[in-house]
Design a protein around this nucleic acid. Sequence first.
DNA 1: AACGTACACTTAT
DNA 2: ATAAGTGTACGTT
Length: 145
Amino acid sequence: MVLRQGACKFGLWYVHIDWDEKVVYRVRFLKTGQESEVPVSLRLFLGGRLTKITDVTSFALKENNAFAQIYREVCKVPYGRTVTYGEIAEKCSTSPRVVGNAMAKNPTPVIIPCHRIVSAKGLGGYSPSIEIKEALLNMESQVYR
DNA sequence: AACGTACACTTAT
DNA sequence: ATAAGTGTACGTT
């Protein structure tokens, strides 16, 4: 297996990605970085010119644990839409808290669109920065308008 | 192995 | 405003 690493700018951040062919192992938002090759659809997506990332998937979706089920549910949320932690929890027969946990530990944000999961009364959280969540949702709402 | 604590929540007092 | 329920992870014993 050949692990490839690249980065792509998004606002003030660099989106760093580690991937191999079709499988993404890690996505991080860092303040530093250097533009380099990333999966094509990721670049288009971050540029607001694609609504669905099709050419890669996340390794976390394939696992066989409680989080993976949650992640798969999160992936069903369409572009430009948001659902609450509670709604995801209900579909997975668990509690909202657990969904929050799963989101916080999401190894591949964007690929797994955890920014579309919000709290029942407000935006909810996002790491490393809530600004990123806002920017992503803002971008999606513009395309969707 | 057990225990405590910390959460990207929600609902009911 | 505060508390209780919730499941997982992670640190400390």
